[in-house]
Design a protein around this nucleic acid. Structure first.
Lengths: 212, 212
DNA sequence: GCCTGTGAAGGATTTCACAGCC
DNA sequence: GGCTGTGAAATCCTTCACAGGC
């Protein structure tokens, strides 16, 4: 029944939700797939098809109720509850993540930070306690955590991923510049701005045939 | 001739390059599509097919020369030269990007930072001068910049993107939580860890049918 | 014997186009 | 008249499977 919804569809839903939230703030109460699609550079047909995997949320002749559809998407994605997150790695990148204010308002609460540097352990970062990495497994056994953020060097990342997965975590946001190996029932998303840059250069290299 | 290489293929090439660089550091001189695929969770056929868009780089019976293929990929992607980057926005996120050490060693040099806060303008961040955002256009007219990084609030991002594109920039790394509109000949990559999280929750919600 | 490169097949995703409803 | 929901068509992408070369 819920079976076989393409992952690309799932990945677009948060984008739709974000746009709907913005529309709601603008005071819009109704939106058509056409209008939403223009805003997101997505075809109206794609939006309608994506939504049709989950139900019939629109009204012919009118479009979609902004708040109604937003609520539906949040429910579908599981955004109607809080998620407990742990962060592993408190180097430069990890610190930036710990202090990043964008997760909390979306319901992602960092409940623990782990680092192997004794100088960091015991500190509070953004009001979150920093534990020794050695305590990772025992902490996770005692405290439920839904999502792990990996911000350790590439050479240490697979080991961290393994420990998170062994402790039962099923979702990993990986900032390390490597491809983690996980069982098929574990969700992984990679954040790597360098890879993003490196694919864009292909196109601007073409556009700029010569000249430095 | 070079026409019509799928974008998904281009997006995988940097991943291959990264893995090859790691193999080279490990002292490996030759790798098969099978071995590389295991490392990257990609089928060997996909690797071979991807590479076949650009030439014949392997040797039957042996595989690929690690350094040779890496050099080819770097050339294809345009990574065999330096790229000039500007950063717009020096809030918390912008500061983290400015101080992030991962771009420079890959050939992405941040040559200028722009911010609208008078308290930041004139400072040096990571040895890069901070300009007033008002100077963005005139600066770009006088100094060649290849790639723009957008790290301003969502409500200001489209305007920044427009100014970058009008100044001739063809590649944008967008950290703002919105979908930028650009002409078709401009490459955009979005970095949004919140969206990444929000798509994973769909799967862990399913896996965890009830419970707190 | 092993592994690449690649047409062809298969599968997945997007787009079309229209019946149906407001 | 405008817009959704959706089968069917079209397109895009991945995988197969094998000829050919090392």
């Amino acid at each position: 029944m819920t079976l076989e919804i393409p992952e690309v569809v799932i990945n677009r839903l948060p984008v739709y939700a974000r746009a709907l939230a913005a529309l709601a703030l603008d005071g819009e109460t109704v939106v058509s797939s056409q209008t939403l699609g223009e805003r997101l550079d997505v075809t109206p047909a794609q939006i309608r098809k994506d939504l049709s995997y989950f139900g019939r949320f629109g009204k012919q002749g009118r479009g979609y109720n902004v708040l109604g559809l937003l609520a539906k998407l949040r429910e579908i994605l599981g955004l109607d509850r809080k998620w407990r997150v742990c962060l592993v790695g408190l180097g430069r990148l990890g610190q930036a993540i710990a202090e990043y204010g964008g997760f909390e308002p979306q319901g992602f609460q960092i409940v623990a930070i782990f680092d192997s540097d004794p100088a960091s352990v015991g500190k509070l970062v953004n009001a979150v306690h920093v534990h020794d990495s050695a305590e990772l497994d025992s902490f996770l056994r005692q405290n439920p955590v839904d999502i792990g953020i990996v911000a350790v060097p590439a050479h240490a990342a697979q080991q961290v991923v393994d420990r998170l997965v062994n402790a039962g975590i099923r979702a990993i946001l990986n900032y390390a510049p490597m491809t983690p190996h996980v069982a098929r029932d574990v969700a992984v998303r990679n954040i790597d701005p360098v890879l993003a840059m490196q694919s864009m250069t292909f196109y601007i290299k073409k556009a700029e045939p010569s000249g430095k």
